[in-house]
């Protein structure tokens, strides 16, 4: 069984009109419950190279979706023509959860740049930044403009919103950078200079590094670690965390983290030890996202519904949190 994109004997497509029509379709489906509950295919309007094996896929969405998305929430992303796809293949996960990495809302500065490039005025876009960590994500990173990506969502919990005068500490590992960027972006957007944002981004090496300039432009301070020392400080993000947490015992700091569980566990532990409120965005494979398969549990909660953003203190008390089983699958 092989599935192919619709036949090529069709008339040439006007991609701009097609993208607008798909965006309208999203809007109609999204409006009643603020949820796209069945996958809607969208043509990619732009594919942005981020680093070796990491790409951002841009799709056009209605303004309501772009503005109502809350950092931390995820979409199920499906490539309906996954070339190695077929029926009943074991371990063949053709649809997986990804959180949004970047958003372009009409009239923002970034948006005007795209408008200039594409001539698409007043439109809004979601960017999914995907790292090639396995078969499904690998296929996604190799898509090009005009290829289809079907999405449904947004599902799950979001990071708590920051208040004026608070400090936000963001700790990411690898592709966990994407929800951290959205959290930073939302806090800055809502509170301007009334929030202090300090971030640590951990990467395997310099080649893997991405989103650095995005974070630099938003955060008050940015520290980078790499496992091999090829960029920033050598080591894990936890090496730099004490100096960042040490300064803040005022009850006005919130720590958010996203990355492999073995990284998040000590990060959350340090925060809890310093009496700092903390939350983690869990990156595990979610087979259904609908609370029906029951295969996404941590403790007695379902990550697809009660997560992906979960309370750090609570996570630390769960015996099935912190090993590496989830990470490859969630984003692979």
């Amino acid at each position: 069984m092989s599935l192919r994109a619709p036949p090529h004997n069709r008339l040439p497509l006007d991609m701009s009109r097609l993208s607008d029509a798909c965006s309208l379709r999203l809007a109609l489906s999204f409006e009643p419950r603020k949820l796209i509950s069945a996958p809607i295919p969208l043509p990619l309007v732009e594919v942005q190279f981020e680093a070796e094996g990491i790409a951002t896929l841009w799709v056009q969405v209605p303004n309501s979706m772009a503005t109502q998305y809350r950092p931390g929430q995820y979409f199920m992303c499906w490539n309906p023509y996954d070339s190695t796809g077929g029926m009943s293949r074991p371990h063949f996960h053709s649809e997986k959860p990804y959180s949004v990495g970047d958003i372009r809302v009409g009239h923002s500065h970034a948006h005007q740049l795209v408008e200039a490039e594409t001539g698409r005025q007043g439109r809004d876009f979601l960017g999914f930044t995907i790292k090639d960590l396995g078969r499904q994500s690998g296929e996604l990173t190799r898509l090009s403009v005009g290829d289809w990506l079907a999405i449904r969502g947004p599902f799950g919990t979001a990071f708590p919103q920051m208040n004026a005068g608070e400090r936000l500490v963001l700790v990411s590992g690898g592709i966990g950078s994407t929800p951290m960027h959205m959290a930073a972006r939302e806090a800055r957007h809502r509170l301007g200079d009334d929030v202090r944002i300090e971030a640590i981004m951990g990467f395997r090496n310099a080649e893997e590094s991405h989103y650095v300039s995005r974070m630099e432009s938003i955060c008050d301070s940015l520290r980078i670690t790499t496992d091999d020392g090829s960029l920033g400080t050598q080591g894990f993000p936890t090496a730099l965390l004490p100096e960042l947490l040490g300064n803040y015992h005022d009850g006005r700091t919130v720590l958010l983290t996203c990355g492999p569980e073995p990284m998040m566990l000590p990060v959350l532990q340090m925060a809890v030890d310093s009496a700092i409120k903390c939350y983690a965005a869990m990156e595990r494979y979610l087979p259904c996202s609908m609370a029906v398969c029951g295969l996404c549990m941590v403790g007695d909660r379902l990550i697809c519904k009660d997560g992906p953003v979960m309370d750090g203190d609570w996570l630390l008390q769960q015996d099935d949190f912190g090993s590496s089983h989830g990470h490859w699958a969630a984003v692979g």
Binding site: A38, S88, P90, H93, S94, R152, P287, C288, M290, C293
Partner: peptide, 21 residues
């Protein structure tokens, strides 16, 4: 093992489709 996704969707309001396998 589970079938390839999407394995369960709500196609329209209150219309649930699944093939979990």
């Amino acid at each position: 093992e589970m079938y390839p996704g999407p394995v369960c969707v709500e196609a329209m309001d209150s219309v649930v489709l699944n093939a979990m396998g």
